Simulated assay, not measured.
Amino acid sequence: MYTPDDLKLAKKLLEHSIELKEGENVMLQLIGLNGIGLIRALAEETRNRNAHPFIKLEDPETNRILLENGDDAFWQNQAITDQLPLMKQMNAFIGIRGAENIYENSNVSSEANKAYSDKFLNPVHFEERVNNTKWAVLRYPSAAFAMNAKMPTERFRTFYYDACLFDYNRLHEAMKPLEERLRKTGIIRLEGVGTDIEFSVEGQNWIPCYGKRNIPDGELFSSPILDSVNGQITYAPSVYQGKPFEYVKLIVKNGVVIDFDSSNNQALEEILNTDEGARRFGEFSFGLNPIIREPMYDILFDEKIYGSNHLTLGKDYEIAPNGNSSSIHWDLVCIGANVYFDGKLVREGRNFIADDLLGLNIDKLTAP
């Protein structure tokens, strides 16, 4: 029916992530049947808490057909007829991404992706679900997922549950000195191979993430002052809208991407041309999960990589806004850059060197 690990994860999601209460409505969405055991565990545990599960099972290949053939009118009708009214009745949401082919949507056109984002994804998820429910999203392990991570399948399953079931309360305590420093910081600079970029975060809000919205988790994010970003930044491998990128390099002036290079420049240019906000940045974050150490072509893991940062193209979050509006939100990850706060080095490579931040290093977070 389901594994003991699935039951542990289901309990963590319901108790820690969304703090489900008796009588509440929760949407349990699974894309790809690979995670059906976790859905079963979640459904059973939800009813054990006298709460109400609403199950949505989706097939990735069918979703691709809809994406390829959808337009503004189609997605607007999908939103207002089905998903948006239901989401408005939810107290909580858990989304499980169990699809095995990360390139399933690689042939979907930029116009079709934009229609989906503008008329469905933004109103249903970014505006309603993100702002008005207790929510969490996660991937589910598979042989294909293990292959992307370059691990044997069973070793990957162990890694997956170690990362997802990490002691996030411990991580939250370790984050607090970094959050305190960031709230007093004006200028952040990243400097590394192919990267030398700086921007202002003065007065911005900072949000610690410790298992309440993503599983696995472990980041501390805000957004840069919109027109303050200047320099160049080189990112690790990424997949966005089903399109793979072995690297992405951006040249930025006064907050706008003015030049770029990548392993797939045609696809990158299409993404950057989505709208005006697609060439600007809506988020900056520190990756802090000590279990996740290498990129695996999955942003829910990669954005949490220990010793990383992501400077995100596109839409900001209302909880930490900078005024950028876009149909895209692409969390591109830079790993191992030196980090300076107002000219002072606080992280060298992937290790913090400031005395009050040493608790965020691997040896401290994973110590017995």
Rank of each mutant, 00 (worst) to 15 (best):
A143T: 10
A144T: 07
N132P: 03
S110C: 06
N131E: 00
F145A: 05
S109W: 00
V137P: 00
N122G: 12
F120T: 04
A143D: 05
M147F: 07
F120G: 08
A136R: 02
H125P: 04
P123A: 11
V124S: 09
R129S: 07
D118T: 15
N132E: 03
V137W: 02
K114M: 04
E111N: 08
K114D: 00
R139D: 08
P141R: 04
A144H: 08
L138P: 00
N132T: 04
N132K: 11
R129T: 08
R129C: 07
N131V: 07
K134Y: 00
A146L: 06
N113H: 15
A136D: 02
T133W: 00
A144I: 06
T133V: 03
A144R: 09
D118N: 14
N148I: 01
S117C: 11
N131P: 01
P123S: 08
N131L: 08
S109V: 12
N132F: 04
Y116L: 11
P123E: 04
E111M: 07
N113W: 14
K134H: 02
K114C: 07
N113I: 15
V124P: 00
S109G: 08
L138M: 10
L121A: 13
D118V: 15
R139V: 08
D118W: 07
S110V: 05
A115C: 12
S117H: 14
K134M: 10
N113R: 15
R139T: 11
E128M: 13
N122P: 12
Y116K: 15
S110H: 00
E111G: 09
E128C: 09
H125V: 14
